[in-house]
């Protein structure tokens, strides 16, 4: 129970242990713990940031999708208008073409008819003359009666 030199021995041991602990035990352990805490903190912050970025990107994507949709709708609208315009133009052009072709046809028919009429008239005149020649069976001076024939032909 008495204080003895043991106290001095223990005191020296105590000092040596504390110094060893201070130099070789505490700094690496505490350093590792703090470094790990920092690492975890950084990781959590990075994950938070990534989440925020993701949210932002989603919003942006949705916005872009909306833009694209409205643009597409606009383009389709324009295309429809243009198509209607083209159809209208083409209809008018077709109409005109048709009218032109029809008119041309009409004029061709008219020309042909006139030509055929003339031909017919000429043939009828010749036929009339031939008929008259046969009816009369006489010497008839066709030249003397040509005025009558001419009149006949004109009446046809």
């Amino acid at each position: 129970m008495n204080l003895t030199a043991t106290l001095l021995g223990e005191l020296i041991a105590f000092v040596v242990f504390v110094l060893f602990c201070m130099k070789y035990v505490w700094p690496p352990l505490n350093g590792a713990i703090e470094a790990r805490q920092k690492k975890i903190e950084d990781g959590l912050a990075a994950s938070d940031k990534a989440e925020k970025d993701l949210e932002l990107a989603r919003e942006k994507a949705a916005e872009q999708l909306k833009d694209a949709k409205s643009q597409a709708a606009e383009i389709i609208e324009q295309a429809k208008k243009r198509a209607a315009l083209i159809v209208d133009e083409e209809t008018i052009r077709g109409q005109q073409e048709r009218e032109k072709i029809v008119a041309q046809g009409h004029s061709e028919v008219e020309t042909e008819r006139n030509r055929v009429k003339e031909e017919l008239r000429k043939q009828v005149a010749a036929l009339a003359v031939a008929g008259a020649e046969k009816i009369l069976e006489r010497e008839i001076n066709s030249a003397a009666h040509s005025d009558i024939v001419e009149k006949l032909v004109a009446e046809l």
Binding site: L3, T4, T6, L7, L8, G9, E10, L11, A13, F14, V15, V18
Partner: peptide
């Protein structure tokens, strides 16, 4: 002696 050594330190 042990506890006194710690306390003395």
């Amino acid at each position: 002696n042990m506890t006194a050594a710690l306390a003395l330190g």
